[in-house]
Design a protein around this nucleic acid. Structure first.
Lengths: 140, 140
DNA sequence: CTCTTTATTTTGACAATCAAACAAACTACC
DNA sequence: GGTAGTTTGTTTGATTGTCAAAATAAAGAG
């Protein structure tokens, strides 16, 4: 791909990321749970139960930070620590029923946003977009 | 678009956002400036000089938070407050030469990432992707 | 069995954030 | 003009999020 095209793609990605990021901030403000907490639920909902280390990696934070975050979420009964079956050093962090409910609520907002911003795409464009995103996610 | 396809698109977007977000966190950790600060420079570099309110909106934070952030950036001489020409309540927040330099440095990392994750896209796919992103950015 | 590596927690210090209250400047309407 | 209401940015006080480094505990290697 030409330098110029990559540059254009880069711009568009950054702008898209910025907008999504601002949207997340605003959606979460004045709610009962913070962005960091909702984001944690979001990742758990998306990827399923994860170990501390895996979860921290997906969130881009250290395990130290995550420990206190999970403490809070566990106290609020949104999440529970399940002892790992074969590694006694580890837990699986798992959404509780309530946590999963909250995740679904937040996800519904995402879905509404996705509907809104994809409205002007044609069927084929949307198709290609999904396949591009999947490829990119795989190459991260 | 079918419910199912929108849902698939939603999933892909969320996953893409999560990955990018974790990447940003990791790129910035152990550097001289925090994610919030780099993000501010990034937005200023992308959109040019902005007023406090506009900048806060693009960042998804309140103007109160931004005031202290801009104070720090101004102290580090990455940014300066230019009095607004027609509204004496306002400033334009503008990257200094050093600030712009730092923005370019960070942007280069983004570009490298974009190259990496777009490697397996065909020329046409990339073309469509850019046009999709642009449309979506416009409809946010 | 000892040493090293890995997973998680704890700690102490600092940074980011918000909501609410404020001051200054703008706008619109009489 | 003058005044009432709005907008813009700052300050304040409290809370939350974050990291690096050190501690703990288990797993794995030799």
């Amino acid at each position: 791909m030409s330098k110029e095209k990559t540059d254009q793609l880069n711009r568009s990605i950054i702008e898209f990321y910025d907008r999504l990021s601002a949207w997340e901030n605003n959606v979460v403000r004045n709610k009962d749970y913070s962005l960091a907490q909702i984001h944690t639920l979001e990742v758990l909902g998306t990827y399923g139960s994860l170990r501390m280390k895996e979860l921290a990696e997906k969130l881009g934070i250290t395990t130290g930070t995550l420990t206190v975050q999970v403490d809070k979420l566990a106290k609020a009964e949104l999440v529970e620590r399940i002892p790992h079956e074969s590694d006694r050093r580890s837990f699986l962090i798992k959404l509780t029923e309530t946590g999963h409910q909250l995740y679904l609520e937040h996800d519904a907002l995402h879905l509404k946003l996705t509907e809104k911003i994809s409205q002007s795409l044609t069927e084929t464009e949307a198709q290609t977009l999904v396949s591009c995103l999947k490829k990119m996610n795989a190459d991260f």
